[in-house]
Nucleic acid binder design. Structure first.
Lengths: 145, 145
DNA sequence: CAAAATTAAGATATTTTTATCCGTTATTAA
DNA sequence: TTAATAACGGATAAAAATATCTTAATTTTG
């Protein structure tokens, strides 16, 4: 559904959000460990997120990544659009470049319904709201034994 | 959602199904053109489908690919499972290897609902049923201008 | 001010997916 | 029986995604 890059990005941002109340900065080593993602790849992704304005960062000792108040309210949809692009969320289920109401593929209507539900899910869930669920111990961001 | 290989496979099989009443054999050139897919890659995919028993084939002049009665009733789910594997359909929305009810990711419940709907769609639609929709002129398998 | 810590940037490597090419084998039909 | 046709099989290539490495730039702190 989503690319690895996108999944790592979302997991990382949720982790940052969980510490955001206390203005905690998290360095890349801790971050990658906390969400079970490959460190160097995650570092690259965090760089992108930083450039895109989805996360904040500061260099030097006691530096790291963090989220400001506005960034906390980022919707999953924004992240997915930025990393995986609109094709993933708007594309035809059978891969036709110009599948539409006029010329639908055989799966068009049914697939569209599901795709739209997924988009709603991504639109309604923010990094902040998901971090709440995690902080309350209702969910996790890394693999448990 | 699905790989290109899987999308091409489904489009090709629906096209074959549309001619199956008349026991038409379709050669790879016509097939690739009919569903707007790259010929050599599609040829490879048809080879796989043939090995897997999803399509029939015969060599030589007037040979080609075709579907027998049983193959007409192939569910999309079977094709997706064979080509993309179960991970695509059962995996965690945020990529956790062992996300489950005991240790759910923050998206688990909502994502699962959508994933299950998609699986139902793939389970309920057969190559045959989709070919009907196409033969009745209600849908298409290639890009229209 | 110097050393250490940490992100940023750019280059490189690996893997997977997608795609192509070529020679072989089987089958048909003239 | 031979020439043409078409799938089959294996090797190769190109592109994209994933992942790593190395060096630079910045900031903090002793």
């Amino acid at each position: 559904m989503l690319s690895n890059a996108c999944k790592y990005a979302i997991r990382a941002m949720i982790y940052l959000a969980a510490g955001a109340d206390n203005h905690l900065k998290v360095n890349i080593k801790e971050l990658a460990a906390a969400v079970d993602s490959p460190l160097p790849f995650t570092a690259k992704i965090m760089q992108s997120l930083s450039k895109l304005g989805f996360v904040s960062s500061s260099k030097g000792p006691s530096g790291g990544f963090f989220l400001n108040t506005a960034q906390l309210e980022t919707k999953l949809l924004d992240i997915v659009m930025a990393i995986d692009g609109p094709k993933e969320l708007n594309g035809c289920g059978l891969g036709l470049a110009n599948c539409n109401e006029q010329h639908p593929c055989p799966l068009h209507q049914e697939y569209k319904t599901i795709r739209e539900r997924f988009k709603i899910l991504l639109h309604e869930n923010t990094i902040h709201s998901l971090a709440q669920s995690m902080k309350q111990g209702n969910s996790v961001l890394k693999n448990m034994l």
